[in-house]
Design a protein around this nucleic acid. Structure first.
Length: 440
RNA sequence: GGGGGCGUGGUGUAGUGGUUCAACAUGCGGCCCUGUCAAGGCCGAGACCGCGGGUUCGAAUCCCGUCGCUCCCGCCA
């Protein structure tokens, strides 16, 4: 018999249906048994009169919570039932996957959740919670929105290699691995490869893929492997063009998520989603420092040209308060704080045509116009103390006619943290990878 | 890499020097209950209080070390 989803049961009143799901709770009484069954669409009560089928009653009594079941019965309306006003009168039950060992914790009590690290050990049970399922439904919708926007704007999706022969940037945070007779590295960014697509004349590309960072960081927002959302586009005039497109892209993504999940997000995450208004607020680094001064945030002396996380939170809070905006671009970062390939400002000395995007005070993206002129790029690499030889292959992209271009890198899980007010990136990613976490 | 915090039955917590300090909740097992509904009632099993050392007449409780986790900073998405 064909499976009926729990959310559709109200269309089958007085019919026999088959449902499949997990045993959420069992109330085993003297003459009756009530089974609350959960599938991905909801919960329903199944009632069984024991004397109707004593053998079945005995089987039910032995069921462990969270067993995977197939049940058949008649759907009846019943005003007494608090769960949706209907129930299924059980006729038959098949145990597909028994849960016959005690659960290590109660996955569904949101109040007394186990320690996060413990839940990560039991991630497949932790993920059974509605809130976790919803995070990844929302992520799917968000990614679809991102792709839709790009495809409608003539972008090409690329998949660049994650195994590399030479460190691409500083090399400090690279994982190395044995590669036949040599050493290879895991890509810490698709940066060089998406710029190669500019040299190839693709003009507009994006990539959503894994990124690896050998950072021994123990914070609520860092991972050693995460999903990077990257974009690069040609024929721009300045980094403003990248920001212009990016904010429309992000607003579009919000609209798609709101369209599909607005109510669920409000009820489950207590977040009232609104698409961020374009244009997003923009503030130069110089003005940001002045602002911090005015609102009394003191930066440490070594951050004279940079921001620290506290400053980012303060700036985010300021624009939320002043303009009601969750996002703000901080632009024109000093060359000291940026990689060698960011283009320098034509007039302002030592300033780059670059930006960071802060969402609710959290760094969620970095972008820039790239330096596409071979000679200048070489000079900038040397100024950063790099040796040209390892990056010569990259530098060569710019010797055969590469247009001016720019782009950004964006953290998918950080975006979900911002979107859903999650306080820890471990809750925003399917499986967390950190310096001391390689399983499950 | 630097700094702070935490570590008590399966899980979440209480207890911060001594006779009720090993408790409460939940989960688990058993029994009871003609329809329950995050059910309820009764009974039961389950922790030598992360590990090692020290102080003390006496340590879950204080000190040192160690391991684990966590947060912040550095760095970044």
């Amino acid at each position: 018999m064909e499976r009926t989803l729990i959310k559709d049961l109200n269309q089958h009143i007085n019919e026999q249906v088959t449902i499949q799901g997990w045993l959420h709770t069992l109330r085993d009484q003297k003459s009756m048994q009530f089974l609350i069954i959960r599938d991905r669409t909801g919960l329903v009560q199944v009632a069984h009169f024991k004397k109707g089928n004593l053998e079945l009653a005995e089987l039910i009594s032995t069921l462990g919570t969270e067993s995977a079941l197939t049940l058949t019965g008649k759907v009846v309306e019943n005003e007494i039932v608090k769960l949706g006003g209907l129930e299924i009168q059980l006729e038959d039950l098949h145990v597909e996957g028994a849960a016959d060992v005690p659960l290590p914790f109660e996955p569904f009590g949101e109040e007394n959740l186990p320690d996060q690290d413990f839940r990560l050990d039991w991630r497949y049970l932790d993920l059974r919670r509605d809130i976790n399922r919803m995070i990844f439904e929302i992520q799917s919708t968000a990614e679809q929105g991102m792709r839709e926007f790009w495809l409608e704007n003539d972008f090409i999706e690329i998949h660049s290699p994650k195994i590399m022969g030479a460190p691409s940037e500083s090399g400090a945070e690279l994982f190395s691995l044995p590669y036949f007779e040599r050493t290879a590295y895991l890509a810490q960014s698709p940066q060089f490869y998406k710029q190669m697509a500019m040299a190839a004349g693709f003009e507009r590309v994006f990539e959503i893929g894994p990124v690896f960072r050998a950072d021994p960081s123990f914070t609520s927002r860092h991972m050693t492997e995460f999903t990077g959302v990257d974009m690069e586009m040609s024929w721009i005039e300045t980094h403003d063009d990248v920001m212009d497109l990016m904010e429309r892209w992000l607003a579009y993504t919000y609209e798609k998520v709101i369209e599909k999940h607005e109510e669920a997000i409000e009820s489950i995450f207590s977040v009232k989603l609104e698409a961020p208004k374009t244009p997003f607020p923009r503030i130069t680094m110089a003005d940001a420092h002045q602002l911090l001064d005015e609102i009394g945030y003191e930066l440490p002396p070594d951050k004279k040209f940079d921001l620290d996380p506290g400053a980012e939170r303060a700036i985010g809070a300021y624009f939320k308060e002043q303009q009601g905006h969750d996002y703000v671009f901080v632009t024109e970062w000093p060359f000291e704080a940026r990689p060698f390939y960011h283009m320098l400002h034509p007039e302002k000395k030592g300033i780059t045509l670059s930006f960071d995007l802060l969402g609710k005070g959290l760094e969620v993206a970095t972008g820039a116009q790239r330096e596409h002129r071979y000679d200048i790029l070489q000079t900038q690499a040397l100024a950063k103390g790099l040796t040209l030889e390892p990056i010569q292959n990259y530098l060569n992209y710019f010797r055969y006619g590469t247009p001016p271009h720019g782009g950004f890198g964006f953290g998918l899980s950080r975006f979900l943290m911002i979107l859903l007010d999650l306080s820890n990136i471990r809750e925003a990613v399917y499986l967390f990878r950190g310096p001391t976490r390689l399983t499950p």
